[in-house]
Design a protein around this nucleic acid. Structure first.
Length: 719
RNA sequence: GCACCUUUAGCUCAGCUGGUUAGAGCGCUGUACUCACACUACAGAGGUCUCAGGUUCGAAUCCUGAAAGGUGCACCA
């Protein structure tokens, strides 16, 4: 054994070594399962696969994505050491709306031009350039966290293979009758000028005026509304069937001229009306409310006039023409008072729908959009609907969600699921492969021929994200990767996107392959500051994982994120916590120094029976860690090894060893030194998935051959 | 309105299918520069396990109810 390397005389300096170590790992080729060394002379067979939830291609790494990387990398390293055929696929997401908005803003600022000034083609070119310039930023940040991702399989949602997969998926689903085009109420964001999904809505409580009025002097029922301006689009008044106050009027029809607009109102009875709210009568505006649209549908009311434009302005003739909705509301109120139709006005608290990204107030509008039918029986899947195909694997535990109480959230979401509106009116994204000519529509990847115009809409980003486990493994081609690694072993992501993403991946995989996309879903919580607030730039409480890595070492950041974090619960991060784990890395460093110094001093010698318990204890510790990692309790797993290393090994075992090592009995000293050295091996290996950098640095500094990254995970037999 | 989660030491949390004096990290107090490490060690203080009932020989752990905090969904006339 060589002398103790000089570097151990100084404290561990992560900054000096991390870059080189990552490069060594990457250059080794072992991130790619095809290159992994055999185990006991036999090639690896059991696959373990994770597809990285792709971060925004133009984004920067925040604590949330750092947590995701750390959890996944820890599990991946653990399984790789255990001899599995481990694949972890990196990727990035185009984040269509966010990216396009960002580029548009930049152009507006620098050149004072809108997207319409540039045109579709030019804007897309600019976005591509922007993405190309920025993508290396996020990719390098993924590397800095130590992520052992197989870069040879890198995927981007907008690259050619993924684009092809999206087109193919659309066409197949259309051919199966699951995708249709229809005029339906959608959530229109007038600020972003696009449709958004129900999940992209944020509700805000605001005070609102609830006005009670009558449509005309001879109209028998007063109704209450907060949206007076939409009343020019009313075609019915609905009351509860059991409401004795209004029973005699049901079925009657009335004409009136409402604020300059002729309206025809039929009185109908519908179960959905709450007799206790307002006057117990609801003015039905089919074109500007989902529930009203549904009511009109139930009662065969054909007239559903649209009275508000995409710019949130009135489209009717008369005094309201061209007015903004908020102005129109006041004009109608004045008019009601003049005409003597005003009854009363009160203030209520109302939940208002705003668009998550732009903050614009959502305007429900009827629009021609593309939808996925979630209730229609699917022929090739035993006549089950997509809804059932999504529900079943989770209900039967074919897919396990950790923590499992999220299964309830999941089924609750499925129960309330409506047809999925998949078209978006932006330019950057996967363009819908539908072609129009005259009144005809054709769906195909390539143009059907001269004179056919492609739909200008693009797909909801979640459509392509939903295909992620398939498209990253080469689907629709029947690749070897797809065969080996799908269904993937684990999907690890934040609980906040369980419905958006997890459910939709199940939908796509169930439909296209007839199998689940992953066997286990591990949901992590949100990372918050030490006061429990969300981390954000505007609050000024942002803790930057890379900055912290610079300061305390990446290993410290990794472990600070994992320690004390049970699955699914939010966790708190602070600089102090990270600093604490830097101390731990240094502790391991010093333990190594002690062990090496004494080994050198004592010289070579066999381990005697009385010292066998030392290494046995270390491998018992490793077994505990193994047990917890197998059940995805990284927090408990790390706690075990942390306690063992610091409290047991350093404070007790090393202390009690000192007299033996310094004593006159040479054989005794040699035996103990050898036992400690053997334990150190086990400790370093057990620690490696959590703290890959220090352990690798120590491993190689001790003169061990090969990378600790692909060394064999400690088992009881090997001790 | 419906559903779900949380409530254990000053702070952040563990505590599996109920079993002797309830645990960890950080923080706090005191001591020790006795050479692996001050990015340290040793010692210590600190809890009627939110509350009220119940099941049990025995409950932080199971059941019922309440309170407080949080989240999702719905409503949003």
């Amino acid at each position: 054994m060589a002398d103790v390397p000089e570097k151990f005389l100084k404290p561990y300096d992560p900054k000096a070594v991390e870059g080189a170590i990552y490069k060594q790992w990457e250059d080794s080729g072992y991130f790619n399962p095809d290159n992994l060394p055999p185990v006991d002379g036999k090639p690896r067979t059991e696959p373990f696969s994770i597809v990285l939830p792709p971060p925004n291609v133009t984004g920067t790494l925040h604590m949330g994505s750092a947590l995701m990387l750390v959890i996944e990398d820890t599990l991946v390293r653990f399984e790789r050491m255990r001899g599995k055929k481990v694949l972890w696929i990196p990727g990035t997401d185009s984040a269509a709306i966010a990216t396009q908005a960002r580029v548009e803003k930049d152009i507006q600022k620098a050149e004072k031009k809108s997207r319409h000034d540039l045109g579709r083609e030019e804007l897309l070119k600019r976005i591509d350039v922007f993405v190309e310039e920025n993508k290396n930023n996020i990719l390098n940040q993924l590397r800095r966290m130590g992520s052992s991702l197989d870069w040879s399989r890198y995927a981007y949602t907008m690259d050619a293979p993924r684009y092809g997969a999206v087109m193919e998926a659309f066409v197949r689903m259309y051919d199966a009758g699951l995708i249709y085009r229809g005029n339906r109420i959608v959530n229109w964001d007038p600020k972003g000028q696009t449709t958004i999904s129900d999940d992209e809505i944020v509700y805000e409580e605001r005070p609102a005026k609830l006005v009670t009025f009558k449509y005309g002097k001879d109209f028998p029922i007063a109704v209450a509304t907060t949206r007076l301006e939409t009343k020019v689009g009313d075609t019915a008044v609905a009351v509860h069937p059991d409401d004795v106050r209004y029973k005699e009027f049901v079925g009657k029809e009335y004409d009136a001229v409402f604020c300059g607009v002729p309206v025809h109102i039929k009185i109908i009875a519908d179960e959905s009306v709450d007799p206790a709210f307002g006057t117990g009568a609801l003015g039905v505006t089919p074109a500007h409310s989902q529930t009203d649209w549904d009511i009109a549908e139930r009662h065969n009311i054909a007239a559903r006039p649209q009275v508000i434009s995409e710019l949130a302005k009135m489209t009717v003739d008369g005094p309201l023409n061209g007015k903004k909705v908020t102005e129109a509301r006041e004009i109608v109120l004045e008019w009601l008072k003049q005409e003597g139709l005003f009854v009363k006005e009160e203030t209520i608290v109302q939940n208002i729908s705003t668009a998550e990204r732009t903050g614009g107030i959502v305007e429900p509008l009827p629009k021609l959009q593309w939808f996925i039918d979630v209730n229609k029986p699917v022929k090739d899947r035993g006549g089950k609907s997509l809804k059932e195909l999504m529900r079943e694997p989770v209900a039967t535990r074919q897919i396990e969600i950790i923590p499992n109480y999220f299964e309830k959230t999941y089924s609750h979401w499925i129960d309330n699921l409506r047809d999925w509106c998949i078209s978006r009116q932006i330019w950057f994204g996967h363009r819908i492969p539908a072609w129009f000519k005259g009144g005809e529509i054709k769906v195909s990847i390539d143009s059907p021929g001269a004179g056919w115009e492609q739909d200008t809409d693009v797909l909801d980003t979640w459509f392509s994200s939903a295909l992620w486990t398939l498209s990253t493994l080469g689907w629709p081609a029947e690749t070897a990767d797809l065969k080996t690694y799908h269904p993937t072993t684990l999907l690890e992501t934040g609980y906040d996107i369980l419905p958006f993403w997890v459910a939709r991946m199940i939908l796509m995989s169930q439909f296209h392959l007839g199998e689940i996309p992953f066997k286990t879903v591990y949901l992590h919580g949100l990372v918050r500051d030490k006061e429990g607030r969300k981390l954000s730039k505007s609050l000024g409480n942002n803790v930057d994982p890379l900055e912290m890595g610079e300061k305390f070492g990446t290993d410290a950041v990794r472990v600070a994120l994992i320690a004390g974090m049970a699955p699914g619960t939010d966790s708190k991060i602070s600089e102090e916590k990270i600093r604490g784990y830097k101390h731990f890395a240094n502790k391991v460093w010093n333990i190594t120094r002690f062990v090496l110094e004494n080994k050198t001093a004592a010289g070579e010698g066999p381990v005697m029976a009385e010292d066998e318990s030392v290494a046995a204890e270390a491998s018992a510790g490793a077994a505990e860690v193994t047990k917890h990692l197998e059940t995805y309790r990284l927090d408990l797993a790390f706690d075990c090894i942390y306690q063992f290393v610091w409290k047991r090994f350093a404070d007790e075992i090393l202390e009690e060893s000192k007299p033996m090592l310094k004593g006159s009995d040479k054989a005794r000293a040699q035996s103990r030194a050898a036992a400690l050295r053997g334990s150190l091996d086990i400790i370093l290996k057990t620690l490696h998935p959590f703290m890959p950098f220090v352990t690798e640095e120590i491993w190689q500094s001790m003169g061990e051959k090969g990378l600790i990254m692909v060394s064999a995970w400690p088992t009881r037999q090997s001790s």
